[in-house]
């Protein structure tokens, strides 16, 4: 029995999922996580290192890892790849100047072998800003349609209003659950 089969069995028992939140710094990762968890979002500082939240949602135990996106921290991302079920890629939809950087980091990430089985949810965040690009524009800018290696979905949201956060997470859970808990 391979290691991942063992892990899979363990997970089946606990209905546990491991989600990794990544994206450039300032995209809104920590704000999304805290808003989803019902916490105050007005006091969030730029992330030094990482945050972990464990929360129960729809009978699943979610382990969510939020890792700092600063340039000097990106080399640490690899630390967190192991047994990731879902990757949440957060984009600041109003930050046109860094879309190219955003695209390159995402495509590099998707080549990582240890993330090969993970479902990808792209949050086009900050939709409350008047200058935000639409989720279709983000989809094009990140060339999401070229992704053949992962299940993916893009959702426009706002961490500040909470709009669509639930929709995104629910899609992600459904996709992962269909893969992990029912097959075999």
């Amino acid at each position: 029995m391979g290691l991942l089969t063992i892990l899979k069995k363990m997970k089946q028992k606990e209905r546990e999922m491991r989600l990794l939140m990544l994206g450039l710094d300032n995209a809104g990762k920590t704000t999304i996580l805290k808003k989803f968890n019902g916490e105050d979002v007005s006091t969030i500082s730029p992330t030094l290192g990482f945050n972990i939240k464990t929360l129960d949602h729809r009978g699943f135990k979610l382990n969510i890892w939020d890792v700092g996106g600063q340039k000097s921290l990106r080399s640490y991302w690899r630390n967190y790849f192991e047994s990731t079920d879902g990757l949440v890629w957060v984009v600041d939809s109003a930050d046109r100047l860094r879309l190219e950087d955003c695209k390159q980091e995402l495509s590099a990430l998707l080549l990582e072998e240890r993330l090969a089985g993970a479902t990808l949810l792209v949050f086009a965040n900050k939709q409350d800003l008047p200058g935000a690009l639409s989720k279709e524009a983000i989809r094009e800018a990140l060339a999401l349609d070229e992704i053949k290696s992962h299940h993916w979905c893009i959702i426009g949201c706002s961490a500040v209003t909470g709009e669509n956060l639930l929709t995104g997470v629910d899609w992600l859970l459904d996709d992962i659950a269909a893969r992990i808990f029912t097959s075999d």
């Binding site: 053949k148 299940h151 993916w152 979905c153 929709t167």
Partner: peptide, 19 residues
């Protein structure tokens, strides 16, 4: 391998109506 076959853009596997 399963993922390769089923992998599809969001439009082909529509999430809930809101999206």
């Amino acid at each position: 391998k399963g993922a390769d076959r089923a992998c599809a853009p969001a439009a082909d596997t529509p999430p809930p109506s809101a999206v």
